[in-house]
Design a protein around this nucleic acid. Sequence first.
DNA 1: ACCTGAACACCGTTCAAGT
DNA 2: ACCTGAACACCGTTCAAGT
Lengths: 206, 206
Amino acid sequence: MPAPRKFTREQLQAAALNLVDTQGLAGLTMRNLATELGTGAMTIYNYVDGREGLEELVAAAVMSQARWTETGEDWATQVAAIAEGMWWAVRAHPHAIPLILTRRSSDAATLAPAEALLRALSHSGRSGRDLLIAFRTVSGYISGFAQAELTSPLSAATPEVVTERIAALPADRFPKLIEIATVAADSDPREEFRAGLQLILAGLHA
Amino acid sequence: MPAPRKFTREQLQAAALNLVDTQGLAGLTMRNLATELGTGAMTIYNYVDGREGLEELVAAAVMSQARWTETGEDWATQVAAIAEGMWWAVRAHPHAIPLILTRRSSDAATLAPAEALLRALSHSGRSGRDLLIAFRTVSGYISGFAQAELTSPLSAATPEVVTERIAALPADRFPKLIEIATVAADSDPREEFRAGLQLILAGLHA
DNA sequence: ACCTGAACACCGTTCAAGT
DNA sequence: ACCTGAACACCGTTCAAGT
């Protein structure tokens, strides 16, 4: 993909992400994006490597928006800050989550949060294999949590649907599932995210 | 979806999963599945609620294959057994992972592993909100790890591609990423999965 | 009640022609 | 070097007609 002229990569990212946010994943189409930008569909191919490249573009657009503050405190606090920043960015674009879970681009803006997370984790004294494991655990938790919030059996567009779906389950076979479903119905996702992360950080301290 | 006659749901699941395993996600098509079964495309609609229902069918097929043994030991050992069983099932069908991450059906066979995991976790003495958080953390870890193995910046079809992609990064901006990439190149995924899970279990013990 | 072919409104992408 | 329309080979799905 050579450097093109009619649009910038940022323009493409913004238009594509806007398409996903407003019309859902089904709205992300070569033709749709092209007309949004006022060109023919084939023009997009000058900026992006086919459909897959288009999806990577959106995923990168989301991840590059992750923000956090350098706390200067202990490594665990810093890890929590970065993790929450990444999660928050993902959460702001729910329709894009399947792309973020599935495609992963390797441009600098996308990798920056990962590197920051690694650096913070390395201040726990880990390196090599231990650092890799710690990293996989935390970043797995971030995307896993985002995905769970979106598509777990406990989540849906409306709480009514959840209650209804859970009520349809045979109560004798799924008692625990029903128990936590009622708890999940009115819980604060941010509090939950933090609490789960603290669990992992406690494990990292041990 | 009323009960149909020409095929069973299991036949549909097997054929659809086989399609995904052999041809990848792009091979999962109404028309493809139909000709595989020797019918017209429209017949599939008697068994499944559109394209989305077809994807749920595949996700359910994978998750229902999770197996584990009742250890009878402490709750942490049991949690680890179930978690590893779920991860192993997912891992056996790499092409289906995007569907598992994205679609979630609520039939009994799919929910059984989740309920088992909840029961094991409840033996740590947790219930209500604490149980919910523990569950989200562990199941987030499972799918997050599976996804990371498939699509992280550190993974690719061949190790050469990873090394090449990492080598393309500016070494001064991403030192830690480069460090763990070389470690990840020759590591045993199963050992890694277990080690990360132990991290979480340690946190659950605290 | 289930099955199914034809037809419709879309896709991504190749190709060839433009500047 | 970048742009772009026409054309091709696909999709999912509606509809109407079958049994």
